[in-house]
Nucleic acid binder design. Sequence first.
DNA 1: CGGTTGTTTGAACTGATTCAATCTGTGTGG
DNA 2: CCACACAGATTGAATCAGTTCAAACAACCG
Lengths: 239, 239
Amino acid sequence: MQASRRSGQTAGSGVSLRDTLAAAGLNPDLAQELEDMPHKLVHVEPRRPFRDPGVPRDEVMFVRSGILSKFKADATGRRQIVALRFPGEGILPREGTASYGIQAIVRSEVMVGKAADFDRILDAHPELQGFFRSLIQRDEDISYEWLVNCGRRDSTARVAHLLCETAVRSRLNIPDEPLQNPFTQQQIAEITGQTSVNVNRVLADLERQGLIERAGREILFTDWPEMRRVASFQPGYLE
Amino acid sequence: MQASRRSGQTAGSGVSLRDTLAAAGLNPDLAQELEDMPHKLVHVEPRRPFRDPGVPRDEVMFVRSGILSKFKADATGRRQIVALRFPGEGILPREGTASYGIQAIVRSEVMVGKAADFDRILDAHPELQGFFRSLIQRDEDISYEWLVNCGRRDSTARVAHLLCETAVRSRLNIPDEPLQNPFTQQQIAEITGQTSVNVNRVLADLERQGLIERAGREILFTDWPEMRRVASFQPGYLE
DNA sequence: CGGTTGTTTGAACTGATTCAATCTGTGTGG
DNA sequence: CCACACAGATTGAATCAGTTCAAACAACCG
């Protein structure tokens, strides 16, 4: 990672950690120090075990490209995806074991560092705490919004809401730029708490209603205001 | 609050902040310092507006008795409760506005302090950060479990799971001690993402199956192992 | 007593699941 | 270049879990 200090570009493609942190308001020197932390750059293949539930989660992760998912399973083994991490987002280390596992949605590049190294930097710079606290609060807000989504919205709104959130978190220029939909219908089902069969019908519905157009995995938002209304999507919770 | 320094008991009933923090592993001097922070002791009436969504949340809260809920509403106004706070738990301040509102489930005593005062203590004692980080992670784990609950479990399991979690978080001695059920059926519906009518049928079902016995608001777990199985309740996520 | 809030029950309806089959696109090896 | 395998998408029919609407009932309280 040392090479990056001069060029401003780290090895591999994707989002730069330092730039992301700086853009989020962090002191550039601190951002640099975090980027210079010892770490591996891991290429994660989609839908293969990456981190299992119930094991210690003593790593910091930063997504440079692709998408990671946190998932749990109920007693009968049905999977529920409980959180996503887009490029520029990360997963903080935690005490003890994590109840959730981690898998990639699509092929992803992830920086993985040791919790011990991360904590050392955190201890040396108390002003980092407030910064990470507000990142954590955003994640909390997203969880709450997902709970509303699963608990209170009908199947169509749930899928529409996920598409809206995905578009915004992918930093798309909506509605001009099409969304390269990263999810299989099975994954959308695992996020929105339904079956893939129904997701398929809902997507067809959304297209029939003229809210989206699909070409393969590509989704174009042809009526963004109406899409937001159907999804009851208020992007405020994403900041 | 000064009076409490000597007696170890603060004004009003309920859980002591200092004792709770100390029991959670915090240095007793720090626990005392947090307890001595300027604050009001507020009595919150159930199901009346307490804190509205969309306003700044520049307060720390600590629940001494009763139960607080965080709630959101979808576009059509249907409420979803996204988190609960039992005695000994709290709500941390946050930057900007909160997307959720706060209401009491039952009459509650809540210590309410200013974020500025709280942050001052936090800044003076960096070792507090790790402590609060692990509290936040528990809340995150609970959110994730709730997502699994809403997304993947059927109506019976959802209600059963909530009852199990409530019993454990109330620190009951299960199954001997009966749970003084704090929720109306409407509130259970708002937590588990269904209608109060169905909650009523589910509760009747659970009783018919011999998993619980009800007397007014009191619930006795007559077959705790089977109850846990039906709910697929693994209390690990509560620590 | 009347008013309010919460619980219980019934009947009709509907959104989503389940199961199963078919279709499509993509990659692989012969 | 074709045959085959495989993962994902699509469709239909039957079923069912949970909603909706409406009404009755119970408990509590000033």
